[in-house]
Amino acid sequence: MNTQSHALQPAAPAAPAMSAGSVLTQVSSVLAVIVLLILACAWLARRLGFAPKTGGSQALKVSASVQVGQRERVVIVDTAEARLVLGVTAAQITHLHTLPPVAPDERAPAPAAPQDFRQLLQNLVKRPGKPQ
């Protein structure tokens, strides 16, 4: 009789299913981690110089620069009206000379099209002294 009573008893209930709130919390936390990882990669790319610099003004452009001392430079800055020759030190910037503006036909050609990802990756992987 004892063996029959075990056979007639219902099986133990299965483990409860996860609640919807728990699943939503897990999915949200994984999504947040992925977004933070993408932002960290973008920040790292910008810090290492892989991302182009933004926010530069087209009105001022440094066209040439020469180091003349430990902390001194002579810089040529192109503006719309003139080219300025400036002496730059750690403490100050001094106007040295004003040149006429560059004619449009003398300006440097537009930069070449950016490299595709494959070429960029190959350039990064190259090591000096290693044959290709």
Rank of each mutant, 00 (worst) to 15 (best):
A80G: 00
Q115I: 07
A59K: 00
E72C: 01
V68K: 09
I76E: 08
G49N: 04
P13Q: 02
Q67G: 10
P13G: 00
R73L: 04
G55I: 03
A12V: 04
A17D: 03
P52N: 07
D78N: 07
V62H: 01
Q119P: 00
T25F: 12
T79L: 03
G49F: 13
P13N: 02
Q67A: 06
A80T: 01
T25M: 12
R46W: 10
Q67H: 10
V23Q: 08
I93Y: 02
R107I: 09
L48W: 14
P109A: 15
A7T: 05
P128D: 04
M18Q: 14
V66N: 07
S57I: 02
L31M: 14
Q119H: 11
A12N: 01
S19W: 08
L8C: 10
T98G: 04
R118K: 02
F50K: 06
Q9M: 05
V102Y: 04
V23D: 01
L124S: 05
G49T: 06
V33W: 09
T3D: 02
V102R: 13
A112E: 10
R107C: 11
M1N: 08
P131C: 13
Q119W: 00
A42I: 13
T3I: 07
L96T: 01
Q70S: 07
M18G: 13
R107Q: 15
D78S: 07
S22A: 15
A91M: 02
